[in-house]
């Protein structure tokens, strides 16, 4: 399972970076979405995959069994997803405004401030 996820993560990173290198503002956003999801999945996988062992203390026991899944990465991913969502929302508006101001979604056209 971890091997499969490793390939999925790699695929997400590769596809995300590829899309970001296209000359298109909308593909830039899609690329960033894929990239941030790849990072979230990596966070999930790196903590170890523990199937069917929810981190719940059974009735009568006073502590968690040692083989339970680690709940922390899921809290981290939740945070990262919320942050990612907010930023993608901002980015959509920014790109929308930029396309209106520049008149095209071609990334080569937004180079007037470069030096």
């Amino acid at each position: 399972m971890a091997t499969l996820l490793a390939f999925v993560i790699g695929g997400l990173y590769a596809a995300g970076l590829y899309l970001m290198m296209r000359r298109n503002l909308v593909k830039l956003i899609l690329g960033l979405v894929l990239l941030s999801n790849g990072a979230n999945l990596l966070l999930f996988t790196m903590a170890g995959l523990t199937p069917a062992q929810p981190p719940l203390i059974p009735p009568g026991a006073s502590r968690l069994s040692t083989s339970a899944a680690d709940p922390l990465p899921q809290a981290l991913i939740l945070t990262a997803i919320v942050i990612g969502f907010g930023i993608i929302a901002f980015l959509l508006v920014l790109v929308h405004r930029t396309v209106h101001a520049v008149g095209t979604d071609d990334l080569d056209a937004v180079r007037t401030t470069d030096t």
């Binding site: 970001m20 503002l25 830039l28 960033l32 990239l35 941030s36 790849g38 990072a39 979230n40 990596l42 966070l43 996988t45 790196m46 903590a47 990465p73 981290l76 990262a80 930023i87 901002f90 980015l91 920014l94 790109v95 405004r97 930029t98 101001a101 520049v102 937004v110 180079r111 007037t112 401030t113």
Partner: peptide, 24 residues
Amino acid sequence: LEGAVKYVTLNLISSTFFLTAVGI
């Protein structure tokens, strides 16, 4: 807006690298 597109993009890539590093 042109400056912001580049600034936002590169900083988001940097955040992804950061998150990746934290995960590992």
